[in-house]
Design a protein around this nucleic acid. Sequence first.
DNA 1: CCTTGACCTTAACATATGTTGAGGTTGTAT
DNA 2: ATACAACCTCAACATATGTTAAGGTCAAGG
Lengths: 150, 150
Amino acid sequence: MSSSALHVLAVGDVARRSGVAVSTVHFYERQGLIEGWRTSGNQRRYHRSVLRRIALIRIAQRAGIPLAIIKETLAEMPHDHIPTAADWRNFTNAWTEMLNERIDSLTQLRDQMTSCIGCGCMSLEDCPLRNPMDELGQRGAGPQRLINPA
Amino acid sequence: MSSSALHVLAVGDVARRSGVAVSTVHFYERQGLIEGWRTSGNQRRYHRSVLRRIALIRIAQRAGIPLAIIKETLAEMPHDHIPTAADWRNFTNAWTEMLNERIDSLTQLRDQMTSCIGCGCMSLEDCPLRNPMDELGQRGAGPQRLINPA
DNA sequence: CCTTGACCTTAACATATGTTGAGGTTGTAT
DNA sequence: ATACAACCTCAACATATGTTAAGGTCAAGG
């Protein structure tokens, strides 16, 4: 192991310290989510700050954000040094905004659902949930037999 | 087209009226999300209520819920008739609960994030975000196709 | 020097969610 | 009766997110 050189990590160090598999580190590098350099012997080396980056990636993934989006969000974050307050603020803002959007759409969906059941429109045919913005399936509508709402 | 027989739909009718591709109807049937029967000539036929089922499937997908879970949630919903008020109430309750869980997780994450930046703990090393106990968006490996981009 | 563990690359597999295409059958309108 | 649309099955492809395996290289200790 490449112990003691605290600022330069081999792929195995990164894996151990970030909690992801070596194959995942390879994968993230291939996808451009993290960056490093090679030794003369072609082995991967990373700056210590890659650990933070991976931590952020995992957190964002837990929020259900796809890697492609995470990559964009991280684009402004430095690969090779500890982020400044400004770096960090930018990132947090972008990410909070994303989370807010996701929260909003789930909330909206839930509320529409309950209002839908509340109003007794159990057919879904005219439900705002059904086709959030388009018209679809608006043809030979037969008699709409509504069950007596509870 | 199998017009006029309003309660019995061929796969193309289902596709047109539900807004999904024929191949998707096939797929959903293979996955056991919907059910139907065959004509003597081996063609698929569906009860009208399959349209509602598909509508529900798409709505749930927009909320980021994987098909396997949707299938469970729909297990109690009838394949062959219009859901009763009780069927519907059960489904709505289950689904609202799921949405609430997801909303809570995201909200928690967002708030931790902002509090984290607020407190200046920029290291993430001791951050509650880093190793939370729950496993939020654990949606497993595999394509996380976003149904609702944007 | 030689062994051994950590590393390298490339390819294939696994899962979820479908879509596309090839090749053949059914059903209906003229 | 014949054409043509709609249907069928099965297999392969596509995407996201990795893991596993095969076969070869590098570096450090004994």
